[in-house]
Design a protein around this nucleic acid. Structure first.
Lengths: 151, 151
DNA sequence: TATTGTTATACTCTATAACTATA
DNA sequence: TATAGTTATAGAGTATAACAATA
């Protein structure tokens, strides 16, 4: 098959390819820890804000309460997180279970090894430059066509 | 919610965020043309290799025959592509329908406008540098943990 | 035997809407 | 009324396995 030259110069297309490459590797590296990149992100958010509720978690992940619920269910089922009584009777306070910090350290180690493997053809200067350029992406003002769904 | 500082320095995390931002905008920009970025890619591959069969299309998209079939079904249903008799009785030859070239031009226009909007905070030098850095991502040799599934 | 297209099926992710219990 | 959690449901997207027709 011939290449599709119309897309080669587009940032979105290259971003798509690089993203797939890197996320597939991260997913594979996290597999032995029985977690995916997205679920690890949720776990790290809870670790960073102990006692948060599910709605706040959903907001931070730019998704809705229903999806946040599924993530928390997964983390609870794996013995990583527990739901404690929250600030009122409607609300859960999410907390890590004891011993999970060690497991998180192992997950982060696997993740950063994958990250290093994916950027080994870049010098550390190039890697830093790439990170800062990626952070500059997005519309200048508030021109985004549509925000992510959030109920 | 506090930020998750463990992830900030990881290429994969920043790539995930940038990818979501850019792809969401592209998806929204293509919505009036009733197509998604992935389906447009399939359409452009067929345009670049007229007469190709579905298996080749699947290989080019790093997916399987079943998924390629669904993409072609979509493109046929929208009047963009037709299945003609192929090189033998098992095989289809995929071709664009007449007039579709004009519609593709409009789709590409919407896509490149979205792309420009997403990179408007970058100078053209920075944009070019970002593209070339993205292309350098990936393992040095053939260290990838697992290739994408392909039956 | 191998390949192409096809169908059936299933699993994940994500989204919406409605329900309940609280506030 | 509004909010938090929950449940049911539905739609993409993607994967596997099996089948018929053909090579």
């Amino acid at each position: 098959m011939k290449q599709v030259t119309d897309l080669d110069g587009l940032l979105g297309y290259q971003l798509q390819r690089s993203h797939m490459l890197v996320v597939d590797d991260a997913r594979e590296a996290l597999k032995i820890h029985d977690i995916t990149p997205a679920k690890l992100t949720a776990l790290l958010l809870i670790r960073a804000s102990p006692g948060c509720d599910q709605t706040a978690l959903g907001r931070a992940l730019e998704t809705n309460r229903s999806s946040a619920m599924k993530l928390v269910n997964f983390l609870v089922d794996r013995g990583l997180v527990e739901r404690r009584p929250g600030r009122d009777l409607r609300t859960n306070a999410l907390h890590l279970l004891p011993g999970v910090e060690d497991r998180i350290q192992e997950m982060l180690k696997a993740l950063s090894e994958s990250d290093a493997r994916m950027s080994e053809r870049l010098t550390s200067e190039e890697r830093a430059r790439l990170l800062s350029l990626l952070r500059k992406l997005g519309p200048a003002k508030n021109k985004r066509l549509k925000r992510r769904a959030n109920e």
